[in-house]
């Protein structure tokens, strides 16, 4: 008996499969421009007793293969609680959205906040800025950490911030300093989102941006709590969906 969860995100698609002993195997692939096709390939020759879809593409997958859908909010609550039983607060910074979720002791969602239509302060924001500074996305965090002095970035809008970065480069500012300033700006924004749902110790940091060492350090310092970072932070939603498949 195998149960699976598929998290169709804006940048990556993650599949998590649980066996009888709750051992998990997973796959993470790029979403690309044909997410449905990618999902089909991912699911080919796999059989499950239950498959639950989550993520922005959940309804599309539901129509084709999945038994049911749950939202990312619920999926992250389930997944984060399973990986870190002490979890009471979740921060997910994904490709196109940021979520702050507070959960009760039993793992039920108490409150949540999400950015609305724009991708300010998300993974996509970092990607665009990395490109503007000629960094690989994997390296921008480490580079920012090495910066002697951050530059203040005023814009959170991806388009405005990119022109702000361009003018800073033109002024001769070191790119490390700009990178650190960008991370600080995201950290400020994320911090206030978390404060709106209330920060309780047991904060799980998930999503692709959780891999970024600079974000980890800045958030820890700003929030004054330890961060619980899953070994694979991009799988939390898919795991939550798989757990839900098993439960129902």
């Amino acid at each position: 008996m195998k149960f699976a969860g598929i998290d169709v995100g804006s940048r990556t698609i993650a599949l998590a499969v649980l066996d009888e002993n709750d051992d998990m195997e997973y796959v993470i692939v790029d979403t690309g421009h044909q997410p449905l096709k990618i999902c089909k390939e991912l699911l080919r020759e796999r059989e499950f007793s239950g498959l639950i879809a989550t993520g922005y593409g959940r309804h599309m997958v539901h129509a084709e293969f999945a038994d049911d859908v749950i939202t990312e909010i619920k999926a992250f609550a389930l997944g984060a609680k399973a990986l870190h039983p002490s979890c009471r607060t979740i921060l997910d910074i994904g490709g196109q959205d940021t979520k702050a979720i507070s959960i009760d002791a039993d793992g039920g969602v108490k409150d949540f906040e999400m950015n609305d239509r724009c991708a300010a302060g998300t993974g996509k924001f970092l990607e665009v800025m990395a490109k503007a500074l000629s960094y690989e996305i994997e390296d921008i965090g480490g580079a920012a950490l090495s910066a002697p002095k951050p530059v203040k970035i005023n814009s959170m809008c991806t388009v405005f911030a990119e022109s702000e970065v361009t003018s800073l480069i033109a002024r001769g500012e070191a790119r490390e300093n700009i990178a650190l300033g960008l991370h600080q700006a995201i950290c400020e924004r994320t911090g206030s989102m978390l404060k709106r749902v209330g920060i309780v110790e047991g904060l799980v940091f998930a999503g692709g941006v959780a891999k970024n060492v600079c974000m980890q350090k800045l958030l820890k310092r700003k929030l004054g709590v330890n961060l619980l970072i899953p070994k694979e932070p991009q799988i939390v939603g898919a795991l939550g969906a798989a757990l839900y498949a098993k439960k129902s």
Binding site: T71, E72, I73, K74, V109, D111, F112, M114
Partner: peptide, 10 residues
Amino acid sequence: KTRVEAFVEM
């Protein structure tokens, strides 16, 4: 829709 669905779940 994501936010409203999550609210309804909640």
